[in-house]
Design a protein around this nucleic acid. Structure first.
Length: 419
RNA sequence: GUGGAUGUAGCUCAGUCGGCUAGAGUACCAGGUUGUGGCCCUGGGGGUCGUGGGUUCGAGCCCCACUAUCCACCCCA
């Protein structure tokens, strides 16, 4: 292993033996999204750095210290996307999508990049499903998006997740709240941790999220965003809760959820898994009514979420969720002797041309080894061709699970029908 | 970025007080059975003991640095 080139830190391989799980999960997510009327969109892996600075926010950790930013040969500053929303918004403004029929419903499955210290459930390249719903400001949109997340988790078979919900207000009411927070924390300034003393000026809402015991104790008495909502925001939040009640989706209001991306307004939510360690947030999202305008489009409301595929897989594994097995061959064709070998190859070609998953041993091993191989591949049926079979055009079709055999003509049409 | 633990075969791991050519299970390959898988038996291939340096007659084991993984903080998916 000394000179072996390894994968860059924080990246992970999906091996052939893992890919069935990925495909299954992605398939479920796609079908849920499409059933709710969402269409897939794909955007570039890298964008102009400014997009994220303006969209996600300069003061966030994600933009401030976690981006993969580089200068390309033309002297442009480009950045590997750290999240999906900004790119989609950029694309939809640029291509006039938001000028068409509203609402617009879109989803994507893509990888994101953040330069963080890797740990379980946290990679430098990770994959997420995201959905975005543009052009609907009513709480119906928030409820729809949350319902999709809940349905996706349910269909994958994840049980121990809880939905946590909060409203962080809008540009009308947030300044009042910010001011109240500021003056509250100001009186305890000396007791706050170093980072929180910093946050006091920049973004006092973040102090609420601090894990240090001192800050937590202070934050316990801090004013809550919910108490400072303007009438519209309060009505909106009440409606979201009511629609969720109608959906039978349980939730708890957690005033501590503030989320680390600046574009959120009003509704923010997280689906948190019980078991997983510190990285229990499987899905997070919310409303971002100001983002389209901030990025130069006509002001258009939006709601969406991101769901981490790796975390989904981790959490599913921890709950013992069973995924469908990788596809196994329908038929393994073994052979003995040159005549058998020729016949086996031709038969496999004919079956493959008819869409049958048929295989033979291209390593030309002993019959015993061939059948061991068939067993490893989990083939449903096997067949052995030798001189006798070729001469009589008949072979014994063997069911690998129970060992039963039936005599059958060596004919691709009959065989395909028998499998 | 901070702190802690760990790194021996593809995988899971033993390896005593520093002492012969570094082991087991599993996986892989072959044979036992010249044309029938799973079970069993036999044999085989596979290691720069994470990397580099140091101590020592001698290092997988002790010391230092680096690196990677895991865990926690932080942040978030």
């Amino acid at each position: 292993m000394a000179n072996q080139i390894t994968s860059p830190r924080g990246t992970a391989d999906v091996l052939p033996s893992d890919s069935a799980r990925w495909q299954y999960v992605e398939g479920v997510l796609r079908s849920v999204c499409e059933r709710f009327g969402y269409q897939e969109t794909r955007t570039p892996t890298f964008e102009h750095t400014e997009l994220f600075q303006r969209g996600v926010g300069d003061t966030t950790d994600v933009v401030g210290k976690e981006m993969y930013t580089m200068e390309d040969k033309g002297g442009r500053s480009i950045t590997l996307r750290p999240e999906g929303t900004a790119g989609v918004v950029r694309s939809f403004i640029q291509n006039g999508v938001l000028a068409g029929t509203l609402p617009v419903r879109a989803y994507y499955i893509l990888s994101c990049f953040r330069y963080e210290k890797p740990q379980a459930g946290r990679l430098r390249e990770f994959h997420q499903l995201g959905i975005e719903l543009f052009g609907a400001k009513s709480a119906d949109a928030d409820a729809e998006v949350i319902r999709i997340a809940a349905e996706a988790l349910r269909e994958i078979g994840i049980k121990n997740v809880r939905l946590e919900l909060n409203s962080i207000g809008c540009p009308d009411c947030r300044p009042r709240y910010r001011e109240a927070l500021y003056s509250y924390f100001k009186q305890y300034e000396a007791q706050l941790c170093d980072t929180c003393r910093d946050r006091l000026e920049k973004n006092p809402m973040r102090i609420i999220d601090c894990k240090s015991p001192e800050c937590q104790a202070i934050a316990a008495g801090a004013p809550m965003a919910l108490d400072y909502l303007c009438d519209e925001c309060r009505d909106h939040f009440e409606s979201v809760k009511r629609y969720l009640d109608d959906s039978g989706i349980p939730y708890s209001v957690n005033p501590r959820i503030v989320r680390g991306l600046d574009y959120y307004t009003r509704t923010v939510f997280e689906f948190v898994h019980e078991s997983a360690g510190a990285q229990g947030v499987v899905c997070g999202g919310g409303r971002y009514d100001g983002l389209v305008g901030m990025l130069g489009g006509n002001p258009t409301p939006g709601v969406g979420f991101g769901m981490g595929i790796e975390r989904l897989l981790n959490v599913a594994a921890s709950e013992g969720v069973e995924f469908p097995a990788a596809p196994a061959p329908d038929l393994f064709v073994g052979f003995v002797g040159d005549k058998g070998r020729e016949a086996a190859r031709k038969l496999v070609y004919q079956l493959q041309d008819r869409g049958v998953h048929a295989v033979y041993d291209i390593n030309l091993r002993s019959l015993k080894a061939q059948l061991k191989y068939a067993d490893k591949l989990n083939a449903r049926y096997s067949l052995v061709l030798g001189d006798d079979e070729v001469d009589q055009n008949k072979a014994r079709l063997k069911n690998m699970a129970d060992g039963s055999e039936t005599l059958i003509d060596i004919d691709p049409v009959r065989l395909a029908a028998a499998l």
